[in-house]
Simulated scan of single mutants.
Amino acid sequence: MTTTRREAVRRVLAANEGFRSAQDIFADLRADGSKIGLTTVYRALQALSDSGEVDVLRTNDGEAVYRACATEQHHHHLVCRSCGRTVEVEGPTVERWAESIGKEHGFTEVTHTVEVFGTCPACAGSA
């Protein structure tokens, strides 16, 4: 895959604050006249995820959605379940717990993913 295609996917993600599905990204690129294929979008997203440039989140129905990272540091997300607004948050208590529980059971190279869902102030105010 050419870097140009990966860059096109990166630009779509950078233009949006929330998480987007591969199909949404594909539709945006096609609407802008790109000839990119859906498989190429998935490959670009995987490469960007592997490099730490995008965050990946699983929705309640198991679909992977993607978002450009605002930071290169390990972080978690607070996600509005109404509008998808996302805030990157640190969780030092979670970090200590994950390391501790791994050690307790003899695990090494422990990693974790924590996503917190709620309703943002804007959505709560309009309800």
Rank of each mutant, 00 (worst) to 15 (best):
V110L: 05
R81C: 02
A68K: 10
F107C: 14
E99N: 07
H112S: 10
A64M: 08
V41I: 05
D32S: 11
H105Y: 14
L78H: 12
R58N: 10
T111D: 10
G118L: 07
F117W: 15
T40R: 10
Y66T: 05
A98S: 12
C123K: 01
V89A: 05
H76W: 10
I36W: 01
V114I: 13
R58I: 00
A44N: 00
A70L: 13
H76D: 07
L29E: 02
L48I: 01
V56K: 14
S51T: 04
T119C: 06
E109F: 09
H112T: 06
G52K: 09
A122Q: 13
V116S: 08
P92I: 08
A47T: 06
E88C: 05
A124I: 04
T113S: 13
Q73R: 13
R58W: 09
F117R: 15
Q46D: 09
T119G: 01
H76Q: 15
L45R: 08
S34L: 05
G52N: 03
T119Y: 06
P92A: 08
V89N: 03
P121A: 14
C80M: 05
T108N: 11
K103M: 10
L48S: 01
D32R: 14
L38I: 11
T93H: 12
A44H: 05
D55W: 10
K35G: 09
T39D: 08
L78A: 07
H112L: 12
P92V: 04
G91I: 08
G84W: 03
G118C: 06
E115M: 14
P121M: 09
E63L: 15
E63I: 11
L78T: 00
G106D: 06
G62I: 01
C69K: 15
G52T: 01
E88T: 04
G62M: 07
K35H: 11
C80G: 01
